[in-house]
Amino acid sequence: MNLIECNDITLSYDHRQVVGHLSFSVEKGSCLCIVGENGSGKSTLLKALVGLIKPEQGTITFAKGFTRKDIGYLPQRTEVQQDFPASVEEVVRSGLLNRKKKGFFFGRQEKEIALRVMDELELNDLAGLCFRELSGGQQQRVLLARALTSADEMLVLDEPATGLDPLATAELYEIIARKHREGMTIAMVTHDMEAAIANADVILHLDYDRSFFGTTAQYLASDLYRHIAGGTR
């Protein structure tokens, strides 16, 4: 079953078209990796999936019973966060807003969701620490925890491993792979081609009018991949 279907969509960023006439779908339980050069519209595409921007043309259709509230989103880290006074627990809890339809405060059940996720991602020891005091890898784990706190069905991750050391990168991909094995649907932007090929069931390579969409095996056999692999070796 397809959770999301994008049909012939065109997307713009800063009044510039970055994605043109793109069609693809996200199957329930799959791991989709989105690759492509800088400026190819990867982040813009994720923003469209979580409803932050509307396609200029084409349609994005969600499966029946599946809504934006079922998507946990991990945007790129921002500069403001680097010296922000917030405890790890506060950041993780802020994911709960995505589950709320109304009301102003978090109930006991909601707080338990946040505690469970922090336990799972081994953040309990950091709970009272300040976000700005954490290493890059820890910060990213906290933001992943926030995404997991906000939804159970699907994760949308924007370059989760950017700027992390190899160990932290491996740890983060391991958590993502585990959530995938547990049945979560993943859509992840990465510029780490090896990680994409190792983790993805399906790959979307954005390249304005000759984008590729297919299984990882098909991608490895594609001209686009051979062109890139040839270019880097």
């Binding site: 923003k47 979580v50 409803g51 932050l52 934006r68 998507i71 989103y73 991990l74 945007p75 921002t78 403001v80 966060q81 922000f84 917030a86 950041v91 802020s94 807003l97 995505n98 926030r146």
Partner: peptide, 8 residues
């Protein structure tokens, strides 16, 4: 803390 996440 994170206007993009909040908007989503």
């Amino acid at each position: 803390f994170d206007p993009v996440f909040a908007a989503a």
